[in-house]
Lab assay of single mutants.
Amino acid sequence: TETAWISLVTALHLVLGLSAVLGLLLLRWQF
């Protein structure tokens, strides 16, 4: 169904966004 796909895509986007923010924070901490 479409709702399942939409929720799955939004979850993936949230995970990608969180990982990107965490990566930037880690880079700032290291340097």
Results as ranks from 00 to 15, higher is better:
Trp29Val: 00
Leu26His: 03
Leu16Gly: 05
Ser7Arg: 14
Ala4Gln: 05
Leu16Pro: 05
Trp5Gln: 13
Leu27Phe: 04
Leu12Ser: 09
Glu2Trp: 02
Val9Trp: 04
Val9Phe: 13
Leu16Ile: 02
Thr10Gln: 15
Val15Trp: 02
Leu14Ala: 09
Thr10Ala: 03
Leu22Ala: 12
Leu26Asp: 14
Leu14Met: 01
Leu12Lys: 03
Arg28Ser: 07
Thr3Gln: 08
Trp5Ile: 13
Leu26Cys: 14
Trp29Thr: 00
Leu8Trp: 08
Leu27Ala: 11
Arg28Tyr: 06
Ala11Cys: 12
Thr10Pro: 04
Leu18Ala: 12
Ser7Lys: 11
Leu24Glu: 09
Thr10Ile: 07
Val21Gly: 04
Trp5Met: 03
Leu12Asp: 13
Val15His: 10
Val15Ser: 00
Gln30Lys: 02
Ala11Pro: 12
Leu27Lys: 09
Leu12Pro: 09
Leu14Thr: 08
Trp5Pro: 13
Trp29Leu: 00
Thr10Phe: 09
Ser19Val: 12
Gly17Pro: 15
Trp29Arg: 00
Gly23Gln: 11
Thr10Asn: 02
Leu24Gln: 02
Leu16Asp: 04
Trp29Ala: 00
Val9Gln: 10
Val15Tyr: 02
Thr10Ser: 02
Leu8Met: 02
Ile6Phe: 03
His13Thr: 14
Leu25Lys: 00
Phe31Tyr: 00
Ile6Arg: 08
Leu8Phe: 06
Glu2Val: 06
Thr3Glu: 13
Leu22Ile: 09
Leu18Glu: 08
Leu25Arg: 03
Ala4His: 13
Thr3Leu: 11
Arg28Gln: 13
Ala4Thr: 06
Leu8Asp: 15
Val15Cys: 01
Val21Tyr: 02
Ala11Val: 03
Glu2Gly: 07
Glu2His: 15
Thr10Arg: 09
Gly17Lys: 09
Gly23Arg: 04
Val9Met: 05
Leu12Gln: 04
Ala11His: 11
Thr1Ile: 00
Leu22Gln: 00
Ser7Leu: 01
Gly17Ile: 04
Leu26Ala: 13
Val9Cys: 14
Val9Arg: 11
Trp29Asp: 06
Val15Asp: 02
Leu18Trp: 06
Leu8Pro: 10
Leu14Val: 07
Thr3Asp: 08
Ala11Glu: 06
Leu14Tyr: 05
Leu14Ile: 01
His13Lys: 07
Val21Thr: 15
Leu27Gly: 07
Gly23Lys: 15
Gly17Met: 10
Ala20Met: 12
Val21Trp: 05
Ala4Pro: 07
Glu2Cys: 14
Leu16Thr: 01
Ala20Trp: 14
Glu2Thr: 07
Leu8Ala: 15
Leu24Arg: 03
Ala20Asn: 05
Gln30Trp: 15
Thr3Gly: 07
Val21Ala: 10
Gly17Thr: 08
Gly23Pro: 15
Thr3Ser: 04
Val15Gly: 01
Val15Thr: 02
Trp5Ser: 15
Trp29Phe: 01
Arg28Gly: 15
Val9Glu: 02
Gln30Ala: 11
His13Tyr: 04
Ile6Gln: 13
Ala4Lys: 15
Trp29Gly: 02
Ser19Gly: 05
His13Val: 11
Leu12Val: 06
Val21Glu: 10
Phe31Cys: 00
Ala20His: 14
Thr10Leu: 12
Leu27Tyr: 12
Ile6Asn: 03
Gln30Glu: 09
Leu12Phe: 05
Leu8Cys: 05
His13Met: 15
Leu16His: 01
Thr3Phe: 09
Leu22Asn: 10
Leu14Phe: 07
Leu25Ile: 03
Arg28Ile: 05
Leu16Ser: 00
Trp29Gln: 00
Gly23Met: 15
Trp5Leu: 13
Arg28Asn: 08
Ala4Ile: 09
Leu14Asn: 04
Leu8Arg: 13
Ser19His: 04
Leu12Ala: 14
Leu12Ile: 05
Leu25Gly: 14
Ala4Asn: 13
Ala11Ser: 07
Ala20Tyr: 05
Glu2Tyr: 04
Leu27Ser: 12
Gln30Val: 13
Thr10Met: 06
Ser19Asn: 00
Leu18Gln: 10
Arg28Ala: 15
Trp5Phe: 05
Thr10Glu: 11
Ala4Phe: 10
Leu25Cys: 14
Ala11Met: 07
Leu14Asp: 03
Ile6Ser: 02
Gly17Ala: 05
Gly17Trp: 02
Ser7His: 11
Thr3Asn: 03
Gly23Ala: 01
